[in-house]
Write a protein that binds this DNA or RNA. Structure first.
Lengths: 325, 325
DNA sequence: GAAAATATGTCAAGCGGTTGACATACAAAA
DNA sequence: TTTTGTATGTCAACCGCTTGACATATTTTC
């Protein structure tokens, strides 16, 4: 492959001049600039980003660590992060931790080795202590981590409230909340709190059920949902902690011959594509994923500029009414 | 951050020795090795991959270019590619071309600048000529490209045949195929050919309908599917060219009060998660995505070793029976 | 006891760009 | 006429690591 030097020789200038053209520094005549660009095209030259990064001591790479890629929420998140990053000239190093602690750590090391500008951590929490001497900004999304990282999350509590209030306003009086993973100290736990609070305030019968991390790793909640419904006779409203769970709930209800929304009303969470692909479509709480992604990239940039960052950054959610309620 | 030199000084050896330890080259006593590792841990040292790559002239990075990330097929593909890559020590540079030609080209340049070991191109075809002087192995997945790249695809023709034969064996006599993008010369076109061939052989009434790339960019086929069904009265079997289209077909049928599988039997393509999340679940043609991803990585490695590669590599598909037929 | 294997060290070039310091032109402005 | 601004060139260090060449020990092995 052509190098800076090749370009310089061919254009009959010095490497310094070519470098000036590429980096837009110092004085360069329009003529020289043109000539250099011509030669670059001729030689099919592409500056070696490795060398540049090494020299400049920065990479414009953002590492993303997620526990799943096919999970529609993370797919959406990744997509939005890639987009936000690309808009600011960053590229994405994608890591799938498969919700395993050791893989997560490995990937963090990997990101570090590659001198990423920042890490967006969407995977479950490794020991926060591990993060301490990282020397790289870490932004978490919907994860608790504390140790000097920025935590971006949506207003989960409010989301729980909105969903529950909506169910109650639809006439439901016996609610079930199928929640995310137990014992993981996740921001999403607040969804259950919002749920419980509203049910309590309205004096509505309610029950919260939590999945295990074993289920999370396969993303197959069916058996679990069936059991939950069977053990909650008379339920007339379900608040699922993700659209994925909600979609599976629709299937179980179909199997059990329970009509949605006639017999049971259902609200999901996330507002990912799948909420629009089921029959009926899913009423859900919309996470502002695009904004969350944009802020993640923004915070990485700010951190690089030495600006102070918030410990926590919470974005508002909203209810999207569809056909499951 | 700590450097090789720091480690060497602290361990009271030379950088050469440390490098030998890290790269497992030459003679090193167990004692020295241990000492070096200790110091590395002490200093929280991570070798700078940029410098390594620059020096070694190879990166262990694979660029993936897809037209969509949230599309379940690509999400699955990305996930499998990441996994196959990680198993062989490669990392992933993720690029979302949004099905736009210019973005695709940009990303190819970007991959080149970053000296990726290879590019897995799942996006639509840029001008093949652009690929010629790339000096980087390019593997396409389900795309035609010719110009010295390896094309991995599943047996689309056979897939079309399997789906159609299945529908006919279920008793269907009036078939509709809702196909992928028109005028793009994609391997997936063979699905329609298989469909037509089998229908012809059985003397079954049939019709093929093609979507436009405008629809592909939003992934919302609803209107289009509705129109297709309305314009094909008496249809009793639909072969959709993706599970995503099949899922939307289920919704449209529900709206139109057409029961699946009683009135219309439906077969999808891909076998992605969504096929299991709809009601009814979708009978589909399974693409061996894992194998395709593994071969993609394998071919990149072989190319790096100077081994000759096939022009085309076709993998077998299979029918997965679910509840939509 | 000599050859071979093992275990380090020394030195320095190279990977491909970036960048600061400094020199040298020539033009336009004061 | 002197400044100042513009446009390049020259030189070389530096980013952090790899690697080949060569030297020098100490152990093993035959």
């Amino acid at each position: 492959m052509a190098t800076l030097k090749d370009v310089a020789e061919r254009a009959e200038v010095t490497v310094t001049t070519v470098s000036r053209v590429i980096n837009n520094r110092g004085y360069i005549s329009e003529q020289t600039r043109k000539k250099v660009f011509e030669v670059m095209k001729e030689l099919n030259y592409q500056p070696n980003e490795l060398a540049r990064s090494l020299s400049k001591q920065r990479t414009n790479t953002i590492g993303i660590i997620v526990p799943h890629i096919v999970h529609p929420y993370f797919a959406k998140l990744i997509s939005n992060l890639e987009n936000a990053a690309a808009n600011k000239g960053y590229k994405i190093l994608l890591c799938n931790s498969k919700a395993k602690n050791e893989k997560e750590l490995e990937y963090i090391e990997m990101c570090k080795s590659n001198r990423v500008s920042g890490i967006v951590l969407c995977s479950r929490n490794v020991d926060a202590a591990e993060m301490k001497n990282l020397e790289i900004p870490v932004i978490t999304i919907e994860r608790n981590l504390e140790a000097g990282t920025v935590g971006i999350e949506c207003d989960n509590y409010q989301g729980g409230r909105l969903a529950t209030e909506h169910l109650i306003s639809c006439g439901c009086r016996n609610l079930l909340h199928i929640s995310g993973i137990k014992n993981e100290n996740m921001p999403a736990d607040a969804r259950a709190e919002g749920f419980t609070a509203v049910c309590g305030a309205h004096g509505v019968k309610h029950k919260v059920i939590q999945t295990t991390s074993r289920i999370y790793s396969t993303l197959d909640y069916h058996q679990y949902i069936r059991q939950a419904i069977e053990e909650a006779p008379g339920v007339d409203g379900i608040f699922a902690s993700s659209d994925l769970i909600a979609a599976q709930t629709i299937q179980i209800c179909a199997e059990m011959n329970i009509r949605i929304p006639e017999k049971i009303r259902l609200v999901g969470f996330d507002d990912v594509d799948i909420a629009k692909l089921t029959t009926p479509t899913i009423t859900t709480i919309r996470q502002p994923v695009r904004e969350m992604a944009e802020w993640a990239v923004e915070f990485i940039e700010r951190s690089l500029n030495g600006e102070a960052l918030p410990e926590q950054f919470k974005l508002p959610v909203s209810l999207v009414k569809r056909n499951s309620t």
